[in-house]
Simulated scan of single mutants.
Amino acid sequence: MPHVREHTLDGTRGPIAVREWPHPAPRYLALVVHGYGEHAGRYDGLAAVLNAHGAAVYGPDHVGHGRSAGERVVIEDFEDVVTDVHGAADLARSAHPGLPLVLVGHSMGGLIAARYAQRHGAELNALVLSGPVIGAWELPGRLLALPEIPDVPVSPAALSRDPAVGAAYAADPLVWHGPMRRPTLEAFVRTLETVEKSGDVGGLPLLWLHGDDDRLVPLPGSRTGVERLSGGRLTRRIFAGARHEVFHETEPDRAAAFAEVRRFLDRTLPGRPPNGPCGTAG
């Protein structure tokens, strides 16, 4: 497991915890944007792959998530979360000025990353979306139509075909194991509409990864959003039988997802990858 440093930033609604997986001489920066109810610490595996590929990796815990301040899983405005993520990017750039910046967003983090790219795309060199909440996502509307939000947490089995992933998720004290919150659902609806109306990301290279058995963020609805967001430089990889978290899937899909990210970055980032196994597409 890679070495980790912890930082605290002044966020829009209180202190934000930022996890750093440092690199002694990085050639680029990677910013990991986690999903609903979880935290950046669940991305140690992805961070290790990106470290080996030459990245200094940073990951904020969003307001109300993980080690950050705020009422649990309550997000009243995703624009504030984008601003917090931008603060984490500033932290990374201040430590390593002039390096290319890659944004990797998973699930809810994909929505945040998409909005970030619309607001700050000129600062990015590449965008990676994994199982992104974007496009036609029907769950918030269905839940908001009910008089009370059901007390039903995310099913660990929906994350991956690997039982160990679900078991670790269920036992993680920093993961939210309760129901979705009405303010957050309302913010999802507003931000999905905002992303839809705010145009594409132009020439920003975009990699989209998704499992075709994703029952939390179904593939067809996400596809419409990703294709609308892309300005034409879209690379996609759909994994047959995979569930919501392709970076935590069973082998060989997990390794294939990591390899797709490395190949995509080798094609899109300035300069050539370093010699040796760390720079191979895998």
Rank of each mutant, 00 (worst) to 15 (best):
E251N: 01
R142G: 08
T12F: 09
F239G: 05
R215I: 12
S107C: 11
S155E: 15
P100M: 04
Y58Q: 11
W208E: 10
G87I: 02
A257W: 00
L206V: 13
E249Y: 01
G70N: 05
A240C: 11
E148M: 15
A55L: 00
A157E: 13
L143D: 04
T12C: 14
L234Q: 10
E251K: 01
V33C: 08
A117S: 11
P252K: 03
L206C: 06
H7E: 13
V85Q: 14
R215P: 10
V128A: 03
L101C: 13
R243K: 10
T250A: 14
A157D: 13
T191Q: 15
L31M: 12
H210Q: 13
H53S: 00
W137A: 05
R236L: 11
I134V: 12
R42P: 01
T194F: 14
R13Q: 13
P22Q: 05
L146I: 07
V4H: 07
A257M: 02
F258P: 00
V128W: 05
G66T: 10
A242T: 10
L139T: 14
A122P: 04
Y36G: 13
G45I: 00
R19E: 14
L144D: 03
A114S: 15
A122D: 14
M180S: 14
L50D: 00
L269N: 01
E79M: 14
A92H: 05
R243G: 06
R267C: 02
A170D: 05
A240F: 11
L229K: 08
A136H: 15
V246P: 02
Y58C: 08
D10V: 11
D212V: 06
P205H: 11
L229R: 10
P273L: 03
A25M: 03
V32K: 00
A122T: 12
D84R: 09
H39G: 14
N275Y: 06
P205I: 08
D213Y: 12
R115I: 10
R13I: 03
R119H: 08
E71L: 05
T83A: 15
H39N: 09
L174R: 04
R93F: 02
P2A: 12
D266C: 12
